[in-house]
Amino acid sequence: MDIIVNQELKAYIDPLTPDEHDALERSLLAEGCRDALVLWGDVLVDGHNRYGICRKHGIPFQTVQNTRFQSLEDVHLWMIEQHLGRRSVSDFQRGVLALRKRAILDARRADEQAQLQRENDGEAPLAQAEPTPADDAPPWAPAPRLSRTELARQAKLSASQVTMIEKIHSQAAPELIEAVKTGAISISAAATVASLPEDEQRAAAQGGKDELRQAAKRVREARRRPRPATSGTDSETGTPVAAAAEDGELERLRQRVASLTAENQALRMELDALRARLGDPGT
């Protein structure tokens, strides 16, 4: 049979590095292709690298059909599950795959909710059903969304790692994402650098490991630097608000000291008067 290579499916999972591809090629040449390639009809689902190497060297291979696939989304979910279980997949790759899985499941939930609600709306006038109590979920209520904790468990990551990978995935420049994939920067540092404008991220990534480290350090130091409570200038005097606030606080402290000094002096006078009445020789 003719095997069809769908380029979108082939690119759905990050490609092997040159070293990983060379190692796989040596293994196939020495031991043959022991694992069957997975097909969906004529479409190749799993084994793109093995298929390419086997064709290049004329190595025999077997195929197996997965008859459970109903749609391309099913194929994507299956591919994600397969790669989440592989030890060679990096933490960042597992996080991205888990986020893709959640996006697919969220889209399915939305579609199912809309379909069930349409069916419910169409049947309600005929059935004349009693109103649903306010504290009960409607019959078309979707299943709960995949939580970050469950997402982390499936990806074998911590919840904080998933949060950082979400930030990188949504905010990082392509050059920064590539730096994470190649190990030039850690996930935590990349999430920090992703806070910068895209052009600064790109410049740091192009500068290499040292520049990426320095960029992450600058962001962390800026976050630790104390900020004034207010900013701007007073509209009447033109004095910076922060400076005016400091001057005002100093004046309040001076008035408080003067008030306490006066109270202390009055108490001393009362004490002297009391001693005089009692004939205290200490007066």
Results as ranks from 00 to 15, higher is better:
residue 40 W to A: 05
residue 179 A to K: 00
residue 32 G to V: 04
residue 15 P to R: 04
residue 94 R to Q: 05
residue 251 E to S: 05
residue 196 L to G: 01
residue 121 D to H: 08
residue 34 R to E: 09
residue 174 P to D: 02
residue 246 E to M: 11
residue 224 R to L: 09
residue 105 L to N: 06
residue 174 P to T: 02
residue 161 Q to A: 08
residue 40 W to R: 04
residue 70 Q to K: 14
residue 29 L to E: 12
residue 70 Q to A: 13
residue 108 R to W: 08
residue 236 E to T: 14
residue 35 D to T: 15
residue 156 K to T: 14
residue 263 E to G: 06
residue 272 D to V: 07
residue 13 I to T: 03
residue 117 Q to W: 07
residue 139 P to K: 03
residue 62 Q to H: 15
residue 106 D to V: 08
residue 93 Q to L: 10
residue 24 L to H: 03
residue 231 S to P: 13
residue 165 I to N: 02
residue 170 S to R: 15
residue 26 R to E: 15
residue 50 R to V: 03
residue 233 T to K: 10
residue 223 R to N: 12
residue 215 A to S: 04
residue 194 A to N: 00
residue 15 P to T: 09
residue 174 P to L: 00
residue 4 I to S: 13
residue 207 G to T: 10
residue 228 P to T: 05
residue 229 A to Q: 14
residue 57 H to M: 04
residue 163 T to M: 09
residue 121 D to A: 12
residue 129 A to L: 12
residue 175 E to T: 09
residue 255 Q to V: 12
residue 21 H to D: 14
residue 195 S to A: 13
residue 278 L to N: 07
residue 281 P to K: 14
residue 1 M to E: 11
residue 62 Q to N: 14
residue 59 I to C: 03
residue 78 W to C: 07
residue 239 T to W: 00
residue 114 A to N: 15
residue 159 A to M: 11
residue 120 N to P: 13
residue 200 E to Y: 06
residue 201 Q to H: 00
residue 59 I to F: 01
residue 13 I to C: 02
residue 217 K to A: 10
residue 86 R to Y: 09
residue 242 A to K: 02
residue 168 I to C: 00
residue 175 E to P: 04
residue 189 A to W: 06
residue 249 E to I: 02
residue 41 G to K: 01
residue 5 V to F: 00
